[in-house]
């Protein structure tokens, strides 16, 4: 049987891959995908805890995280598309209109 630690370490690895992507990539859509990766890794660790405690209530949290992730995907992509229409770019280092 796989110990709980293996799932947690896997989740930590996935989270760090997501963090690296968010920090390194220039394309806003790739940054967006990396945020989904981080959300997924957190969900994985939540489900691992829930399963190893034999308590399905922990899965409710994952359910609500998924809801918020769906809302975030819709709004985030709408913002990216609006940004592209105005600035003709989705590179985050070229979008600095909030700087003065």
């Amino acid at each position: 049987m796989i110990p709980l630690n293996f799932y947690l370490i896997l989740s930590a690895f996935m989270f760090c891959v997501g963090v690296l992507g968010v920090l390194v990539r220039r394309n806003a859509i790739v940054v967006f995908m990396c945020i989904e990766l981080m959300l997924n890794s957190v969900n994985l660790s939540l489900i691992a805890f829930s399963s190893y405690l034999g308590d399905p209530t922990g899965q409710m949290l994952v359910f609500f995280v998924m809801t918020v992730a769906a809302a975030e995907a819709a709004v985030g992509l709408a913002i990216i598309i609006a940004l592209f229409r105005n600035k003709q770019t989705v590179n985050i280092d070229e979008i600095n209109i909030l700087k003065w």
Binding site: F32, S51, P56, V62, A73
Partner: peptide, 24 residues
């Protein structure tokens, strides 16, 4: 599925692969 979360596995495929990935 390995963690006995069958319902959430199906939800994951429906919401993420079917919804969010298509949006992306």
């Amino acid at each position: 599925v390995l963690l006995n979360a069958d319902f959430l596995a199906v939800t994951q495929i429906l919401v993420y692969v079917g919804g969010i990935l298509v949006l992306i």
